[in-house]
């Protein structure tokens, strides 16, 4: 009877060992990215944000961050997102949202009759300006301790992004109108003032 109990106990332990050990050996960690856009049309003098999702359907928690490469580096507001802890078994449906924002300055030349602000027009007869690059989610460095000789490894997933800057044709005479209106109002006021003074 005692022997039977021992055998059952050993069998259970062996089963637990067989189930857990291979999992521990093959435990993996990795990174994933969810993206919904690769090309965006943006306006001049605007801030445009693109949302990505970070996920980790693997066995171990990971630290990961988003980085930007290519022309996009010129316009991105935060070159690298803050590092996020992504729990193991986080599927793409539960991805952690991370937003990257891009500040687009004035890129198309405008012709102004006076200075840089009066009687301006933009005719958009030039080539479209665009910023291309890559958005990467990088697994934060593996901690290798001891007297290691060889190569550490880094893993990431990269997706493309292109921002096309929209050129809007316009003729801006508003500032000229405002100045003329101000001058006319001043002249009318001055004329009426003089007339009242004469009486």
């Amino acid at each position: 009877m005692k022997n039977k109990k021992k055998i059952i106990l050993v069998a259970i332990l062996a089963l637990v060992f067989m189930i857990t050990i291979p999992q521990a050996v093959s435990a993996r960690k990795g990174v994933g990215i969810v993206w919904g856009t690769e090309t965006v049309i943006v306006s001049e003098n605007s801030v445009h944000c693109v949302e990505y999702g970070l996920y980790n359907p693997w066995d171990e928690d990971v630290l990961a961050s988003l980085t930007v490469d290519g022309d996009l580096k010129q316009v991105v507001e935060n070159e690298e997102s803050e590092t996020k802890l992504i729990k193991a078994n986080t599927l793409h449906d539960d991805a952690i949202p991370v937003e990257l924002c891009f500040k687009i300055k004035e890129v198309y030349e405008k012709d102004c009759a006076v200075g840089e602000f009066l009687l301006c027009e933009q005719d958009c007869d030039c080539e479209q300006v665009s910023y291309s690059g890559e958005i990467s989610v990088i697994e934060e460095g593996n901690k290798i301790t001891g007297g290691f000789a060889g190569s550490k490894t880094a893993l990431g997933v990269t997706v493309p992004l292109k921002l096309k800057v929209k050129c809007e044709e316009y003729k801006d005479y508003a500032s000229a109108y405002v100045i003329v209106i101000a001058i006319v109002l001043m002249l009318i006021g001055l004329t009426l003032y003089k007339r009242r003074k004469k009486h």
Partner: peptide, 23 residues
């Protein structure tokens, strides 16, 4: 319509631990 892509990769534990050529 919104098309969403998602992609995840993972290195084996031996690759995560580094590529060693020994002594």
């Amino acid at each position: 319509v919104t098309i969403q892509n998602y992609l995840s990769i993972s290195s084996s534990s031996n690759l995560s631990a580094g590529v060693d050529f020994g002594t």
